[in-house]
Amino acid sequence: MRGVNPTLLTGPPMRLRLGAHVLPMVGRVRMYVCGITPYDVTHLGHAATYIWADAAERVLRWHGHTVTVARNVTDVDDVLFAEARRRGESHTMLATLQRASFENTMATLQVRPPDLAPSAAQHIGHVVQLAAALLDRDAAYERNGTVYARTAHAAAQAGFTHDLALERAAEFHDSPDDPDKDDPLDVVVWRASKPDDDVSWPSPWGDGRPGWHAECTAMVLALFGPSVDIHCGGADLAFPHHACEAALAEAATGVTPFARSWLRAGLVSIGGAKMAKSSGNLVLVEDLLREHSPGAVRLLCLNRPWAQGWTYEPAALDAAEATLQELYAAAARPGMAPGAAAVPAALLDDLDVARAVAVALEDGGQAARTLIELLALS
């Protein structure tokens, strides 16, 4: 049987578990990763999300799956446009430079480049198609050149109370107080241009630009069809972004679920607040890499439950560096310990890196070498 790995036929079934979801996979695995808005440098909170997505991809590839990863770039966004104006640059130049910087940081951290790297600006036409499909299915309505989707149900489906959903919608600039909306929790699919807008595209409803949630929905549908196997992003994106993204796709296509599973990496905090530029409490990856190895930064992010939020402290990175050196020493020990099989098994079980590290340190030899190779800790 040419081209078939016999161990995939004779060994036990290999299924990835993510949280409560066990995911039998056949052939190609479709993974979508919410990417950056390219207006500033990469901080540790960004890196943790992409390192976890990379780890999941590597585990699946290790077990014989073909994984197609799409990681988008949100290069149509008010934050990007505002930063470009502040710097006196074109938004396309700013996005190009910041994207290059981000990709260089990812390469240093040994995050595999995505197979597909769509940008919102490349998919304007698909957003227009999405808006038209939603209107055809009475899942959207048009007011004054803006197309709104009926997404009020998405909050409850995501486990958010109405009041909390309104708070999060305001936080993510979804304008719940917009008087043209039928419901405050409806979201914009296509936003009509304002007099002071300097970036817009034509549409059947007039000049305008996409809504944020619609951008990701349109990119997923264009690249993968109506569903994906694993959708990755930060935990803070659960609502409104991921919930509305799924609601738009499911309303437009009639296919459910939009995502078979969600890998939302726990948020990184510092000083008691989520790491974010708006909080002014960033830890930049380029600063960490001046004194620590890429493997240590990866291990710092990975050696914990993937959905768990955590607080960055410099001592934790020092500890990760020390653990990494212990793994290297363990890998130098001879022998084919039983733990060599236990390491990938632990990673299939909800990406349990902590258990895999414990096995590798105890058994050493091939177990430690397997862990280092599988998680790109060298």
Rank of each mutant, 00 (worst) to 15 (best):
T146I: 12
W52D: 01
R99G: 00
A154S: 09
S378Q: 13
A56K: 02
K274A: 10
D40H: 08
G272N: 06
A354Q: 15
A259E: 04
E171I: 14
V255W: 08
V127T: 13
P113D: 00
L361D: 12
E373L: 09
E250F: 05
R28G: 02
P24Y: 02
A259H: 05
A247L: 06
D350N: 13
V228L: 06
E215K: 05
V127G: 01
V73N: 09
D178A: 12
P344F: 06
H242P: 08
D236A: 06
G64M: 03
A368L: 04
A84T: 09
T7K: 11
A140D: 09
Q129A: 14
P38R: 07
H241D: 08
A345L: 14
A48P: 02
P195A: 09
L377C: 07
V228A: 06
G234E: 05
A367G: 13
E291D: 15
A95Q: 03
R137A: 14
G225I: 09
S200C: 14
V26N: 08
L267S: 12
V67I: 01
V353F: 10
P294Q: 05
A360L: 08
P305Q: 05
L371G: 11
D183P: 05
P114C: 04
D75M: 07
E362L: 06
R168N: 07
E286A: 15
G335T: 02
W205F: 07
R168G: 01
P184D: 10
E167W: 14
A346P: 05
A222C: 10
D174Q: 15
T256C: 04
E57Q: 11
E103Y: 00
A319F: 01
W205I: 11
A235L: 13
L130M: 08
A120K: 02
A120H: 02
G271H: 10
G234L: 04
D363E: 09
D196N: 11
V353T: 00
E89C: 08
M219E: 03
D77M: 12
A246E: 11
R209A: 14
V4L: 13
A154D: 01
Y39K: 11
Y50E: 03
V147F: 02
A296N: 02
V127Y: 05
T108C: 08
W212M: 04
G254S: 10
D183R: 07
A149H: 01
T311N: 10
D78Y: 01
L134S: 08
D350R: 01
P113C: 00
S378M: 10
T253C: 09
H21M: 11
D350H: 02
A243T: 05
P179C: 12
G335A: 07
